[in-house]
Design a protein around this nucleic acid. Structure first.
Lengths: 134, 134
DNA sequence: CTCATTGCAAAACGTTTGCACAAAA
DNA sequence: TTTTGTGCAAACGTTTTGCAATGAG
């Protein structure tokens, strides 16, 4: 199960990958397209979708699934991390820690190769915005 | 932020909720509709979608998001648990343990009210099916 | 009567595919 | 020439919405 790309990327795929590499947060295909247009006017939305799918299959990108949100993607390389989703401002924050003893969750005889954790709640700036409302 | 339903459920909403209550696995709206038709012939797919959305907002149902899969829903009540997704047979298993020290992941000043964990890998029966392939 | 519920069809939305054209080999 | 990459538009599957018909109060 190879994670590295086997073939060189097409020009458009390189553009799309660069967008994700430059972004500090996960992007929807639509958001990536809007960013890509600035670098490469004329690039088509379908091309971005194709690139995202291919880059994901190649292990370059990883999907980030948040409840009731459009799927987003981020670089699969770089430090392993999870996400905090603020229900109020809908922003996504990276969480750079992992809980211990995750292997204990895996049922007998199963083999885990990956895991994803999403924390839901309210971020600090949204908590600060509130006066006394509760 | 009340989680309990404030108004009584409509007949169709009760039907849909019963489907999820009887199911041992998360269901897509489509799957819930196919099950609901057996109990209540003539129920419309849109009605099931409406019920799922309302029941989710009312805290009766909870979305289960798996990478690259259609969103499923399950009862929000009952024992807290997570999910193991087998990439081979695409089945979803419940995981009835929680990792310790999850609060340590929450960034300073943030407030977490929920979390979701999905483990990815291969289930026991799929591992058993394989002979020596690796 | 008025209001809430629901089925149906159409619309809307995100995503994929078919295809023709252009560029590269 | 053949092959590859791409934009565009159409198709597709999922979800939401408009609206008329029904039934309850």
């Amino acid at each position: 199960m190879s994670r590295s790309r086997q073939k060189s990327l097409t020009p458009r795929q390189q553009v799309v990958l660069a967008i994700f590499r430059q972004s500090s947060i996960p992007l929807t295909p639509q958001e990536a397209w809007e960013a890509a247009i600035r670098d490469s006017p004329g690039i088509g939305l379908a091309t971005v979708y194709r690139a995202v799918r291919i880059l994901t299959e190649a292990g370059e990108l990883r999907p980030v699934e948040i409840a009731d949100e459009i799927p987003r993607y981020e670089m699969a390389s770089g430090p392993h991390h999870h996400h905090f989703y603020c229900r109020k401002c809908t922003r996504i924050y990276e969480v750079h820690k992992c809980p211990p003893r995750l292997d204990d969750l895996v049922p007998q005889g199963f083999k885990m190769d990956d895991h994803s954790i999403v924390l839901y709640g309210t971020c600090r700036s949204c908590l600060g915005d509130r006066a006394t409302t509760d």
